[in-house]
């Protein structure tokens, strides 16, 4: 039964182009939050965003300490060896406190919640990644055009992270 459309959000199409922890979590929380409200959600992983679904890389994502004004540290300090690792460890500790899952578990939650995960074909080719290198819950490797087609219908919103 098709309900009358009254402007509500029905589907979130999220494009993730970065692999820093803060961006990956932002995309994942937004997708998960949509599903919790009964809104459909799909994520398109492109360029560095692909690392969030790359088996060997997804466990080693970092917080950006350089070029991130919210870190409240001088840019030169952020560039010192070990600084990113330290900030990442601290952030992961805080996340555990608020019951935030790690990247792999979060991906499992998204898949179980019905979120579709797509890898960008062009970026896959550029980085020489194969489908076997990627997280097993990935729906498929698709083109930008395919992704837009996925988003057709009333009440779809697109978001670039």
């Amino acid at each position: 039964m098709e309900k009358e459309f009254n402007g509500e959000i029905r589907k979130m199409m999220i494009i993730l182009s970065k692999a820093t922890l803060e961006n990956v979590y932002a995309a994942f929380v937004l997708a998960n939050g949509a599903r919790m409200e009964g809104i459909q959600a799909e994520i398109f992983f492109t360029f560095f965003g692909l690392e969030a679904v790359h088996k060997k890389k997804l466990e080693h994502l970092h917080v950006a300490t350089v070029g991130n004004p919210a870190m409240h540290m001088p840019t030169m300090l952020g560039g010192l060896p070990g600084m990113e690792a330290l900030a990442t460890t601290m952030m992961k500790k805080e996340m555990e406190k608020i019951d935030m899952p790690d990247i792999h578990e979060f991906l499992d939650i998204l898949v179980a919640s019905g979120v579709k995960l797509w890898a960008c074909r062009l970026a896959m080719d550029m980085f020489h990644y194969k489908k076997e290198d990627m997280y097993e819950g990935l729906s498929d490797v698709i083109t930008v055009g395919d992704f837009y087609k996925q988003g057709s219908g009333l009440g779809t919103h697109m978001l670039f992270v």
């Binding site: 998960n32 919790m36 409200e37 009964g38 019951d99 578990e105 939650i109 179980a112 919640s113 019905g114």
Partner: peptide
């Protein structure tokens, strides 16, 4: 939270969504 319910041994997340589809 969804995560806690997934670990509850009462229902897994996929099933939880199937039981109550619209949120």
């Amino acid at each position: 939270s969804i995560r806690k319910i997934g670990k509850s041994n009462v229902v897994d997340i996929k099933e939880f969504y199937e039981l109550f589809p619209n949120g």
